[in-house]
Design a protein around this nucleic acid. Structure first.
Lengths: 119, 119
DNA sequence: TCCTGTGTATTATATGATTAATACATCGTA
DNA sequence: TACGATGTATTAATCATATAATACACAGGA
């Protein structure tokens, strides 16, 4: 996994997990790496990992019992909503960036199709 | 004009001018506010305004002669390219955000159309 | 001529967010 | 029981950005 330096690392870690969860690479109830383990894997500070996990816990995406490793939520509705939010947020950002330029919808969709299908 | 706190202010100022130029609200050759003037208008520090203007000058979007206020470039090709870059960048960001979620192109375009037409 | 408003440059400080360092608490198990 | 791995909490250090404070050169106009 590679990080950009525009966004805080913990945000990017959260994002990464959300994508994994939304696409089913992590399944409901599945155990995820411990804070220290993921910190080693991603070469980040354990506190950064902790902060990312805390965010996800507050969002209901993972849960923690006692001092055993956290797990993906079993609430598939929460997962579905999260997926929708990611998509909607992306769309809103996109529209906010494009609209002030006065590009036509068709022009935009044309260019989008190229990039989307690519590869 | 309102700022978000995600991006540096000078970047947002540059962005604002680019949009104004791309949509023709500023015409080629037109005079723009002085550094100190825009700083007052936007309630920002003059140095931040200067930094924004410097960026635009280096990008060839504005030019300055002597100590008179800067002006929009007369090179319409530069303006056209800048407009394209904004659109392409927005598309790339969007695709990068959406693709990892495995949403179909049609689903995305459908949602996009709603937001795009809205208002 | 002198004053005001331009652009430009340099240096220092403040601030907020992020990351790092460290310590503490808990639990299962060898 | 004692160790090791877990989650959690607190404090310190770092860093980028924005702001501030000055200073300088230039040109036009009152």
């Amino acid at each position: 996994m590679k990080f950009n330096k525009r966004d805080p690392v913990y945000i990017q870690v959260v994002r990464h997990f959300k994508e994994q969860i939304a696409t089913g690479h992590y399944e409901p109830g599945q155990e995820i790496p411990s804070r220290r383990e993921i910190a080693n894997q991603l070469k980040i500070n354990p506190n950064t990992a902790q902060r990312a996990y805390k965010e996800m816990e507050e969002a209901g995406l993972i849960f923690t019992e006692g001092n055993s490793p956290s797990r993906i939520t079993n609430n598939e509705e929460v997962i579905g909503q999260m997926r929708n939010e990611i998509i909607l947020e992306a769309i809103e950002n996109f529209v906010a960036a494009i609209k002030p330029i006065n590009a036509s919808f068709d022009e935009v969709v044309g260019l989008l199709k190229e990039k989307y299908v690519e590869e």
